[in-house]
Design a protein around this nucleic acid. Sequence first.
DNA 1: CTAGAACCTGACGTGGACGTGAGGGACAAG
DNA 2: CTTGTCCCTCACGTCCACGTCAGGTTCTAG
Lengths: 125, 125
Amino acid sequence: MRIGELATSTGVSVRALRYYEEQALLIPERSGGGQRHYDEAAVDRVQLIQTLYAAGLSSRTILALLPCVDAKVNTPQSRALLNAERGRIDQQINQLIEARARLDDVIALSESPASGCNRTGAALV
Amino acid sequence: MRIGELATSTGVSVRALRYYEEQALLIPERSGGGQRHYDEAAVDRVQLIQTLYAAGLSSRTILALLPCVDAKVNTPQSRALLNAERGRIDQQINQLIEARARLDDVIALSESPASGCNRTGAALV
DNA sequence: CTAGAACCTGACGTGGACGTGAGGGACAAG
DNA sequence: CTTGTCCCTCACGTCCACGTCAGGTTCTAG
């Protein structure tokens, strides 16, 4: 499949796919004219990359992890990296849970009196 | 307390504290010479700000929430905002849990064979 | 064969939370 | 009064995952 089809079937932009290649995360074949051609497995790989990006991993880190996925390879370094990232994610989850609890505190407080928070009505976020 | 003391006692940089003021998140008094002076409550406020930043909220959103914390105010808009952000955080937690599961898959696979993932030994992350 | 859609390679722009000097005041200690 | 440390205000730099043109090429349908 060409880049446009992969983009629509994964929901990421064409630019993002080219960026993944730039970062050596997903390197497609090329047709005679220089156009990128991806196989079916690329769909899953793109989704994995997106998942890891969403977890806050950098391109560099993902690049280091992908060989482990592809070849089921295994070294002390790779295990250390995997565990380190797992720990980072755990920590991040805990931070989010803490933040949610703080928000819940605010929500609980804001459910009795009546006053003017954000009276301006200005757009937020 | 002056800015340096608040910085060390909260663990954030002096630059960050000035940035918070720029964003109207934490506005201190000024001494005759123009130096910032914070009260004790600033420590908690900085920590709250940090927590919300860590949860991915923007300065604008935090700015909109802080009046709710300070004055326990309450409007339909503020409740909507609080709930929206709560939802975002929940969603982000779920994404992280998913990412962790994918990492666990990789870890499980990488705990039987032996091969060369990241043979280069290059620094990661 | 031709129009048009999809693709290509640069290369600069973006947004957010600061980092990092430059150049100059403020303030307690001696 | 001077030294040293902390503080001030600009204001440009950074990182990173892309967005967004510009100018040109390739592929496909008719």
